[in-house]
Computed example of a mutant assay.
Amino acid sequence: MPHLGAVLDRVFIIGFGDIGRRVAAQYRNPDTIVTGLTRHPELAGSTPEEVRMVYGDLDRPATLEGLPTAGALVYYFAPPPAEGISDPRMAVFLEAASHAPPVRVVYISTSGVYGDRAGAWVDETAEPRPETDRARRRLDAEERLRDWGRQQQVPVVILRVGGIYGPGRLPVARLRKGLPVLRESECGATSRIHVEDLVAACRAAAECGQADRIYNVSDDHPGTMTGYFKAVAARLGLPAPPEISMAEAEGRLSEAMLSYLTESRRLDNHRLIEELGVRLRYPDLESGLATIDPARESIR
């Protein structure tokens, strides 16, 4: 796969949320045109943060005609629908992009596609075993995109990402409410990544990721969900959340939270480090939280 770092002149970001904005900021130079997709017609034509916004709704195929994908690097960050086991939004995008193929697509997926591994280390050769519909939708998107990339001869890079944290991405409201967490002795293993390191991984995947390749994105030191909540509380000067047993959790925690708690795995990030050459600024949770300003988090 050729290196795009020196020749890239067009970037198209689908899913222009927090991650999209952070990635867009990596391309602030006069030689690169960055475009973002918005589903709000009134925002089309605006240029927030030097990004050109174009209208298109992934739930309305007719609105996607003429997307600026031809010859562009595409970052696909849009989530699947909230229900079902497939991602029709990805299918709609791929149909539109077939008429104007990009030079590469980088897709953010989830480590949830691996399912529960009883705390074992998992690398990218592991067969996916999604256990929730949320993860099944992501795997469906991965498979659609990879098949399309082979057919269209467009390089596709998949990032399977652990839990994302960082400034503005901490469970502050939950901690303030004093909501319970699972007793740490009953917690499974989980992996995470600081948002700045995720952005670096996105850029590296675009510039030197191998075609039709999957990369786990996580830091070097997995932990537990409860350990994460307690560390964040300590950093922000908030009380540690109360801990309850799994039996109690099944009646008090949300279905989404329980799905995270009942799966246990540790992500192997060797490809991220060795193939993509990503140097983690925050190789563990302690270093990542150390740079977060508690005062700023308190007013978000």
Results as ranks from 00 to 15, higher is better:
270 H>M: 05
57 D>Y: 06
77 F>T: 03
128 P>V: 06
63 T>Q: 08
122 V>Y: 08
166 G>N: 04
272 L>R: 02
112 G>D: 12
175 L>Q: 09
107 Y>T: 02
63 T>E: 06
131 E>C: 09
108 I>D: 01
83 E>P: 00
123 D>W: 10
196 E>Q: 13
212 D>V: 00
231 A>I: 02
3 H>A: 13
181 V>L: 01
161 V>G: 01
253 L>M: 15
179 L>M: 10
192 R>Y: 08
15 G>D: 00
144 R>Y: 03
203 R>G: 00
274 E>V: 13
283 P>H: 00
76 Y>R: 03
70 A>E: 14
149 G>V: 11
15 G>T: 07
228 Y>C: 08
162 G>M: 12
202 C>Q: 01
208 C>K: 14
8 L>S: 06
268 D>L: 00
286 E>S: 13
86 S>A: 14
243 E>Y: 04
294 P>T: 08
235 R>K: 14
208 C>R: 15
239 P>Q: 05
44 A>V: 01
196 E>F: 04
11 V>L: 12
122 V>T: 13
187 C>I: 04
250 E>V: 06
229 F>T: 02
296 R>G: 13
79 P>F: 09
161 V>N: 03
297 E>A: 06
102 P>W: 08
121 W>T: 12
291 T>M: 12
184 E>S: 02
20 G>Y: 06
192 R>C: 00
190 T>M: 09
180 P>V: 09
108 I>Y: 00
107 Y>R: 09
67 L>P: 05
103 V>S: 13
49 E>K: 10
38 T>P: 00
109 S>E: 08
121 W>G: 02
18 D>W: 00
55 Y>Q: 10
249 A>M: 09
210 Q>E: 14
82 A>H: 11
30 P>T: 07
244 I>Q: 05
5 G>A: 15
46 S>R: 14
10 R>W: 04
255 E>Q: 13
158 I>Q: 12
267 L>R: 05
40 H>T: 15
68 P>S: 02
53 M>G: 05
